[in-house]
Design a protein around this nucleic acid. Structure first.
Length: 864
RNA sequence: GGGCGAAUAGCUCAGCGGUAGAGCGCCUCCCUUACAAGGAGGAUGUCGGGGGUUCAAAUCCCUCUUCGCCCACCA
């Protein structure tokens, strides 16, 4: 036996840093390291360049790293391509707030100066998150890192825009859009959340122009009435029959507006009469369209709120007031004029901008839009025909539902950071699409042109990620080799924002799907089931856990909770367990290595194997299959749980304990070979999940060359010769026996450390006696029953008798026996009840009946 | 309003048609020469409620309740 050379506790920090460095130095993460005709590629979701690592990231990218490492071991030429997203709004906000601290605004710097400043920020402090990724051991090809504003990527973005522009898919138009007055930009529908807040519903009288009474409208935003163009009622609402065509005075303005009929008002709500403000409400806009209004004519479609959410109403006392101030003044004035009928408490559904938290102000403005229906059609087919598969499959419905009801996408953002819209205007306002200013000027016949000030929605560029990162529009070698990619691993909340758009863009530009599989992983929630959020203080920092427990433990603890579920509650428990598991691996390795030494052993002949050898090899086989199967289903929980169970409960608790008695001397070579084999296969099987500790252990095994890497070891396959149903059954029975014997000892207060002289067993095969004696701590197992006083138990048809002279508590023993008898009797009754039911015997599957009969027989013999 | 998920041991969750499982926690014993971040043994459940299908239901169907999420709408 060798002296222990490894410390009794596993210290991840040193090991993890050392190996990550070595892997990188050896260029292992680049597909060029081992070319193959079989290829596997993931272009990882680019985190925001402003981002820092949170649990959701840790899980998302760990899953992808596992898949990549697994495929690499299977011999695939594997590219996992990392990068970051320029994240227009988020990044602009970060730099603007830096400027604010310096007492500057972006306007003082000017557009060019500001953008330059953002690039400087990006070079210095952007992409922190990718450095944090390395702490988790991700085997990504850093030499191919991409950014959504790389010059080449920028060209790709413009090219798609111009292509769609030429095909008439992109158009400019006036619409009511979601305006974020804080960030002073439009945002798309899916970047806005609903929030119900307590507010008020104001009932306002609009007097008829003919002086005959009034009509009452209900509104939550009285300040918008300054831009009303009509009052709408439902055509079937009896209360307003015949009123269409009449005119009403619009209070506070001196204007009159018509009463119209439209399907839009809900007679059940409010008064059934709705004021129509096409410039400041999306529904009212639609009504305005039906009214045939000209949205370019200010007298037909007045506006009353500007981009700072201030009221625009020259020559009124409200001009220049903030929207909420104006609301108070207007309500007070209406009341003074006796036009405020009443005010109700009302739960108001507000639209809140996700990025800024500001209340959205719907504004009529000129924006760029993209028609989505033509793009969506092929993307719907791809999923319906199964060319793209969702896991779990239910998300396909979510995707299809959105796609089938898709609306046009507002592409323009009033920001400075991003891909500027490649459209230029002559002095006469003629729009010229072009890749750059020179081209535009040329097209304009040399005239001066100015570029559209807006930039594209960030998602416009991320939608190209799977092919623009590989070099498109150039026909690069990477593009040819790795597109389409294999899988997209993503969170539920960006199925619309990103997944759907990548599918559309991939099919449209590449004429091929961007990825075959979409795996939607669970949302990581705080322990109490609430969303993890920095601002709420409910977030936990993965880096802190990595420091405390190690990257392998961090990875394992997330994976073991990730199946087909849609959420994970993350507490400290699982990661402690995972850390303990690492420690267990470490110590089992210490034990095995101590005995194996540095001699590489040959596989012994089958006949030399004992029952425990045969059993553990059979279990190893089964584990190899189960883990591979789980991975191919993206079922991380199944894979990791099986590994945990095999290594800890089967290999450590049973095999190692069972083989100890045989480790001395020459015949010890057999269990030594088994130990080495199991340990080596486990390293390979666990490498994708826990790459550092497995690599460290693997390199201490005899026969492993120092310049080889577990990262590129072969993924294990089951050995047909190890399949052994008989060993499984026999060893299972021995386990039962050992448990029964240990239980007897414990119940009679016999110390676990004390080795007793003999246990009597009736019906135990002689060849198994040694094993049972060793595991249950007896010097020997004798056949038959002792003549001295003893206690008995029965397990798997074997009677066990433990001599216990002078120690027996008669009463306790009787109590124990009768309790056991009662339990078995109940089980037997249950079984007999089923068997005596003729319907059961007749209709159940034959093997079930046979099994039930056998179980009954077993119970009966135990009772006797 | 439409849809999706969840409800199983004190806690976190597996199981998804054939006698209720794991980890943590709990109780008892043990520092047994790999590991106390460990070992051995043990206790613990009307599988959310109610119907139905079936020889057999935690598992399939219907319904209700409670949580969570998504979409649409809310003057």
């Amino acid at each position: 036996m060798n002296e222990p050379t490894l410390s009794t506790r596993y210290d991840p920090t040193e090991v993890e840093e050392r190996w990550y460095q070595r892997w990188q130095d050896a260029g292992l993460f680049q597909p060029e390291h081992r070319p193959s005709e079989r290829r596997y590629c993931i272009t990882i979701p680019p985190p925001n360049v402003t981002g820092s690592l949170h649990m959701g990231h840790a899980l998302c990218y760990t899953i992808q790293d596992v898949l990549g490492r697994w495929k690499r071991m299977q011999g695939f030429e594997t590219l996992i391509l990392p990068g970051t997203d320029h994240a227009g709004i988020a990044t602009q906000k970060v730099v603007e707030s830096q400027l604010r601290q310096e007492g500057l605004t972006r306007h003082e710097l000017g557009r060019e100066g500001f953008v330059e400043r953002v690039w400087k920020w990006k070079e210095e402090s952007g992409g922190m998150i990718l450095k944090q990724f390395k702490r988790l051991g991700f085997a990504f090809d850093w030499s191919r890192e991409r950014f959504t504003m790389d010059p080449h990527y920028h060209d790709a973005v413009l090219r798609v825009f111009l292509d769609w522009y030429d095909r008439g898919l992109i158009y400019r138009g006036k619409r009511v859009i979601n305006w974020d007055p804080g960030l002073r930009t439009s945002v798309s529908d899916i970047e806005v959340s609903d929030e119900v807040r307590q507010g008020k519903l104001y009932h306002i009288r609009y007097p008829f122009a003919d002086g005959n009474g009034y009509l009452v409208v209900a509104t939550t935003r009285p300040e918008t009435m300054l831009a009303d163009v009509a009052v709408a009622v439902h055509p079937r609402d009896k209360r307003y029959r015949g009123m269409a065509g009449k005119r009403v005075h619009l209070p506070l303005t001196g204007r009159t507006i018509p009463v119209i009929e439209d399907e839009y008002p809900d007679p059940e709500f409010g008064t059934g009469a709705v004021k129509i403000t096409p410039a400041h409400d999306a529904n009212d806009f639609e009504v305005g369209v039906r009214m045939g209004l000209d949205f370019n004519a200010p007298d037909q479609v007045p506006t009353c709120i500007d981009e700072d959410a201030r009221v625009v109403a020259p020559n009124t006392p409200y001009h220049g007031l903030h929207r909420f101030e104006a609301r108070k003044r207007i309500v007070a004035d209406l009341e003074a004029e006796g036009l405020l009928e009443r005010v109700e408490e009302h739960e108001v559904a507000l639209k809140i901008a996700d990025r800024s938290g500001e209340v959205i102000e719907p504004l009529l403005s000129e924006q760029w839009f993209c028609s989505m229906k033509p793009l969506a059609e092929p993307a719907i087919q791809a999923v319906k025909e199964g060319r793209i598969r969702f896991t779990p499959s239910r998300y396909a419905d979510v995707y299809l539902d959105w796609m089938e009801n898709i609306r046009d996408w507002c592409l323009s953002r009033q920001l400075w950071w991003g891909h500027r819209i490649p459209v230029y205007y002559t002095e006469d306002g003629i729009a010229i699409p072009a890749m750059n200013e020179a081209e535009a000027r040329e097209k304009a016949g040399g005239a001066d042109v100015t570029q559209d000030p807006d930039v594209l929605d960030t998602w416009f560029s991320s939608a190209l990620w799977p092919f623009a990162t590989l070099g498109w529009p150039d026909e690069t070698e990477d593009l040819r080799r790795y597109y389409p990619t294999d899988v997209l691993v993503t969170a539920r909340d960006i199925i619309y924002l990103w997944v759907a758009r990548m599918v559309m863009d991939g099919l449209d530009q590449m004429k091929e799907i961007p990825f075959r599989d979409v795996y939607v992983y669970a949302t990581v929630l705080a322990e109490d089931g609430k969303r993890m959020s920095k601002s709420l203080g409910t977030g936990v920092d993965p880096l802190e856990y990595i420091n405390r427990f190690g990257a392998d433990a961090m990875r394992f603890s997330l994976l073991v909770q990730t199946g087909m579920n849609q959420e994970i509650r993350f507490g400290e428990g699982p990661i402690q367990e995972a850390r303990n598991f690492c420690n267990k691996i470490w110590n089992a390795a210490r034990f095995a290595l101590m005995h194996i030494g540095d001699k590489q052993l040959e596989e012994p002949p089958r006949s030399a194997l004992e029952i425990e050898d045969r059993w553990i090899l059979d279990r190893l086989n089964e584990t190899i299959e189960a883990v591979g199967d789980a991975l191919s289903r993206y079922h991380m929980m199944d894979a990791t749980k099986r590994l945990y169970e095999f290594f800890w409960s089967e290999f450590c608790d049973w095999y190692i304990e069972a083989c100890k008695r045989r480790l001395d001397g020459a015949e010890g070579d057999v269990p030594r070979w088994v130990l080495a084999t199991c340990l080596e296969r486990c390293c390979r099987l666990m490498q994708p999940f826990m790459p550092h500790i497995t690599e460290e252990v693997w390199h201490r095994l005899p026969g492993v060359s120092q310049d080889s890497h577990l990262v590129y070891a072969d993924w294990p396959s089951p050995e047909p010769a190890w399949q052994d149903a008989e060993a499984r059954e026999t060893f299972g029975m021995l386990q039962e026996l050992v448990r029964a014997a240990r239980n007897l000892r414990q119940e009679f207060g016999i110390s676990p450390k004390e080795t007793l002289p003999a246990l009597y067993a009736q019906g135990l095969a002689e060849s198994s006696a040694d094993l049972v004696a060793s595991l249950a701590r007896f010097e020997s197992i004798e056949a038959g029953a002792p003549t001295t006083p003893h206690v008995s138990a029965v397990a798997v048809g074997v009677d066990l008798h433990l001599p216990i002279e002078g120690l027996m508590d008669v009463e306790a023993e009787i109590k124990r026996l009768s309790a056991q008898l009662e339990k078995r009797g109940k089980e037997l009754d249950e079984m007999m009840k089923r068997l005596s039911n003729p319907m059961f015997v007749e209709r159940a599957k034959p093997e079930v009946v046979v099994a039930a009969r056998a179980a009954a027989e077993q119970l009966r013999s135990e009772i006797e």
